[in-house]
């Protein structure tokens, strides 16, 4: 077996099957859960604003789905590592950390596919973005997805049990989804609390998406700063995740 050619696609597929396909196939309740979580806030925002913020809501739900993938992945990886010892088995195999994380990342997308499809349908009905607007939102979603996956992996390798992982999930959820104004404009937050919102990279991502759709007015300089922030945070976390995450323990 030493000279056998290994398929990276097989290794990525393994994570997708373990963490998404088999879970949804054998536990259909998971499928329902993936649909409910992001849609519930969208529905509340739409009702409370009498439909005025439906565009914000759909955009916000798309960004939140990407961001929450990392939070979910952190919990999933921690569970598979600490309770099932799957990660130990994978470490002692030809799969490397990058392939494992890539596979787990893709698995989170697969897991989120039902809601993403639904949101894209809603977006095409209610906000009808141009190609340029759609590409901007897609790029924001990809950057935020990479950021959250890197964060999720880093945290999961530092946890020793699921209780700790829940603790991290709670903190990360507040930082990335509760504080930032993803489903509404930042102007709805009174000063000086807006400064707190800018702690979270999700705020910058939401601002780019909202500006792209013309929902809020943001100067070009601010937009450049927004992009720099989310890309820099994403790269920093990817590097940090690669260097500091514990694959083979020191």
């Amino acid at each position: 077996m030493v000279n056998r050619k290994r398929s990276v696609w097989s290794q990525i597929l393994a994570s997708v099957l373990v963490n998404a396909v088999y879970a949804m196939e054998n536990y259909p309740i998971m499928f329902v859960n993936t649909l409910l979580s992001p849609l519930s806030i969208l529905i509340v925002i739409t009702f409370v604003s009498h439909g005025m913020l439906i565009g914000f809501g759909i955009e916000g739900a798309l960004i939140m789905t990407a961001v929450m993938s990392g939070v979910s992945m952190q919990g999933d990886l921690s569970h598979l590592k600490n309770d099932m010892k799957l990660q130990d088995m994978v470490v002692t195999s030809p799969t490397g950390p990058l392939t494992y994380v890539a596979g787990m990342g893709v698995s989170e997308i697969v897991f989120s596919l039902p809601v993403l499809v639904l949101l894209v349908i809603l977006a095409s009905i209610y906000i009808q973005p141009t190609l340029m607007q759609a590409l901007t939102i897609l790029l924001v979603i990809i950057v935020m997805f990479c950021f959250s996956i890197a964060l999720g992996f880093l945290l999961s390798t530092l946890t020793t049990d699921v209780m700790q992982s829940w603790g991290f999930s709670g903190i990360v959820s507040v930082l990335l989804s509760t504080i930032p104004p993803v489903y509404y404009p930042i102007s709805y937050i009174p000063m000086p609390f807006q400064y707190i919102a800018y702690i979270s990279p999700t705020t910058y991502a939401a601002q780019i998406a909202q500006a792209a759709m013309g929902y809020v007015s943001v100067s070009k300089l601010n937009l450049v700063v927004d992009w720099i922030v989310i890309v820099a945070v994403c790269i920093a976390l990817l590097v940090l995740g690669y260097k500091k995450a514990r694959w083979r323990e020191p």
Binding site: R4, K5, R6, S7, V8, S10, Q11, L13, A14, S15, L17, V18, Y22, M89, V90, S93, P94, T95
Partner: peptide, 9 residues
């Protein structure tokens, strides 16, 4: 799935 992790087709 473990065999896929090991890179088998």
């Amino acid at each position: 799935s473990y065999l896929l992790y090991r890179g088998f087709p």
